[in-house]
């Protein structure tokens, strides 16, 4: 059972992708949702400023952070990567801070800088990647595996139980990254 953070963003796309692979999934919108039993967590795309605020205001922060720190396999895409990152270059805001990397928000500029690429994802092979007003990773600490590099910038990493990427595997039909996550 996978809990998908559903305070804002493209959580429905994640749920459809997971269900397509036979994984049960539910939306996390309130503290009560976190009492359900689940063994995986997804942090979807969206606006990280909105999500960070709602995670705190809706009383989700402590429980979610302890699940991530406690080793629950966590998939984070785009805004989700920013929520996990220990440091954001162009902002003081930190959400969970459980992933020892530095990210740069809106690293490719505004919407006109959004793009699609085909790239290698370590252990998975070639996958299509959608970058929508995306961040990238500018620094990683020891113990963090780089999973993909796009035009010289790190765009996906894995650290213990956390798999995080700047792009959106949930938007396209390619299921390989989700299969990899479900085997973590």
């Amino acid at each position: 059972m996978t809990g998908v953070l559903a305070v804002q963003g493209d959580f429905i796309e994640h749920i459809k992708m997971l269900e397509g692979l036979g994984e049960k999934a539910f939306e996390i919108r309130s503290e009560a949702d976190l009492d359900k039993s689940f063994d995986r967590l997804v942090l979807p795309g969206g606006e990280s400023t909105v999500q960070t605020r709602l995670i705190r205001d809706l009383g989700l922060f402590d429980k979610l952070k302890s699940k991530i720190s406690g080793g629950m396999p966590t998939l984070a895409t785009c805004a989700g990567l920013i929520l996990l990152a220990k440091k954001t270059e162009n902002s003081d805001s930190v959400c969970f801070g459980t992933l020892p990397v530095t990210v740069k928000r809106n690293a490719y500029g505004r919407q006109l800088g959004s793009f699609r690429a085909l790239g290698d994802f370590k252990g998975v092979g070639q996958v299509p990647m959608e970058f929508i007003r995306a961040p990238y990773i500018t620094a990683v600490s020891d113990g963090v595996s780089v999973m993909s590099v796009t035009d010289g910038n790190i765009t996906a990493v894995k650290y213990k139980n956390q798999l995080a990427m700047a792009f959106h595997p949930e938007l396209l039909c390619d299921t390989k990254i989700f299969e990899y996550f479900l085997n973590m």
Binding site: G9, D10, C78, S114, F115, R116, R133
Partner: peptide, 18 residues
Amino acid sequence: KTQYELNKELAQMLKGGV
């Protein structure tokens, strides 16, 4: 066509928002 897809996808990121 790719740009149009990317533009639709930006709207998907705004979902559940104000």
